[in-house]
Amino acid sequence: MPATSFAAPVTATYGTDDPSAPLVVLLHGRGSTDREILSLAPHLPDGIAYAAVRAPIAEGTGFAWFANRGIGRPVAESLAATMAWFRDWLDSVAPPGRPVVLVGFSGGAAFAGGLLLDDPGRYAGTAVLYGTLPFDAGVPVGPGRLADLPVFVAQGDQDHVIPAELLTRTWDYLNGNSGASASSHRDPGGHGISATTLSALREWIDGTVTA
Rank of each mutant, 00 (worst) to 15 (best):
A3P: 06
S5C: 08
F6A: 00
P9F: 07
V10G: 08
Y14G: 02
G15N: 07
T16I: 07
A21H: 04
P22L: 00
L26K: 12
L26N: 03
L26D: 01
L27S: 13
R30Y: 14
T33P: 05
D34G: 08
I37L: 01
P42G: 06
P42R: 09
D46L: 00
I48C: 03
V53N: 03
V53P: 03
V53C: 00
I57M: 00
G62S: 08
A67D: 10
I71S: 05
I71E: 05
R73C: 04
V75Y: 13
L79K: 06
T82M: 05
T82S: 10
M83S: 11
A84P: 07
W85E: 02
W89D: 04
L90D: 09
S92K: 04
S92R: 09
P95S: 12
P96T: 15
R98S: 04
P99C: 06
V100M: 02
V101W: 05
L102C: 10
A112C: 11
G113S: 09
L115D: 08
L116I: 13
D119K: 15
D119E: 12
G125P: 01
G125F: 10
T126F: 00
V128H: 07
L129Y: 13
G131C: 12
G131T: 15
T132K: 07
L133V: 05
P134A: 14
P134Y: 12
A137V: 13
G138W: 15
G138A: 14
V141F: 04
V151K: 03
V151C: 00
Q155A: 11
G156W: 11
Q158G: 06
D159I: 06
V161M: 00
V161P: 00
I162R: 05
I162T: 09
P163C: 08
A164G: 05
E165D: 02
L166I: 12
D172M: 10
A182K: 12
D187Q: 07
G189Q: 13
G190V: 01
G192N: 02
A195Q: 10
T196P: 02
S199A: 11
W204C: 01
I205A: 02
